[in-house]
């Protein structure tokens, strides 16, 4: 036994109890309710086996479309936010005039409520009177003035773009902290050896930032899987069902009184998030434990 350990094991029980009651228990109850016909229309609960799971994955309904949209949203926003956040972080750690002002401006969108961002962009992306299309038309780029939120083929891309705009400042801030913690000695040594900016970035910044990038990836993946507010405020899942994600579907199912199906979707999502979280945390722990 390690006698230098600061706290006894039983200290964790309080946290475990709270976590168990507030997170694990409701999730397990949700999974249990997924096997019933719970709805607004009846006070009684009946066991229905795997019927709700079949419904969720049935081609008759739009749930798989929402699931795929959620996964697409997660992958695309995670990648783009990380890439753009990293580019901005590298830029914002250079000698730039009004550095803090620029950092604040880039960080600002993530402070705004998703609902406010949604309302602003609904107006900005209005096909006829929106700021974006007016600007494009004024520049003679009429062919680029698209129906950003009302064309089912591009609406989901617009939603992802707005979310990336909102979230990349946050990722940038975390990565700035990561870059600042890299000792300048490495860069000085590289310069003496004749390394250019790209080589410094490729062989010093990027490897040293890997743990921070892992954290931002985990944060983005978990955020992406449970996205709701941005989609709700911008399109409410429309036009038609084009931008439905799992949680807008869950919200709709509850509003239609189909609680069991809503709970089943939530449970599917919970299983997905727990699995994603488990593997990512395992990967992070392995990285931390790696002496290299």
């Amino acid at each position: 036994m390690n006698k230098n350990r600061m706290y006894p094991t039983w200290f964790v029980f309080g946290a475990l109890l709270l976590y168990g009651v507030l997170y694990v228990l409701p999730s397990l109850m949700g999974i249990g309710l997924s096997f019933t016909d719970w709805s607004i229309y009846s006070e009684e609960l009946h066991f229905v086996g795997l019927k709700n799971i079949q419904t969720v994955f049935s081609s008759d309904y739009n749930y798989t479309h929402a699931l795929l949209n959620t996964l697409k949203f997660t992958v695309v926003t995670t990648l783009v936010k990380n890439v753009l956040g990293l580019a901005l972080a590298v830029l914002m750690t250079k000698q730039v005039k009004l550095l803090n002002f620029h950092r604040a401006v880039l960080y600002l969108p993530c402070v705004l409520s998703a609902l406010i961002v949604g309302m602003i962009f609904k107006s900005v992306l209005n096909p006829r009177d929106g700021l974006l299309n007016r600007t494009l038309r004024a520049l003679g780029l009429d062919f680029m003035a698209l129906r950003w939120l009302t064309d089912s083929k591009i609406a989901f891309n617009s939603v992802m773009a707005v979310d990336i705009w909102k979230g990349m400042g946050y990722i940038m801030t975390i990565l700035i902290a990561g870059i600042m913690s890299i000792s300048p000695v490495y860069y000085e040594a590289a310069r003496i050896d004749g390394g250019n900016a790209w080589q410094c970035f490729r062989h010093i910044t990027l490897p040293m930032l890997t743990p921070t990038l892992t954290v931002t990836t985990v944060l983005n993946v978990l955020y992406g899987l449970k996205v709701f507010d941005t989609v709700y405020a911008l399109t409410n899942g429309g036009p038609g069902h084009a931008t439905e994600v799992l949680y807008t579907t869950v919200f709709r199912e509850f509003s239609l009184g189909r609680y069991a199906v809503g709970t089943t979707l939530s449970s599917v999502m919970a299983v997905l998030m727990v699995s994603a979280g488990y593997f990512m945390i395992r990967h992070m722990v392995r990285e931390e434990g790696d002496p290299a």
Binding site: S152, G237, P239, G240, H241, A242, G257
Partner: peptide, 19 residues
């Protein structure tokens, strides 16, 4: 009536040619 908004979404999908 309980699926009024849902009918709206379905009709929108028809208008867009998605359904």
């Amino acid at each position: 009536n309980p699926q009024w908004m849902e009918i709206g979404s379905e009709l929108t999908a028809v208008l867009l040619g998605d359904e």
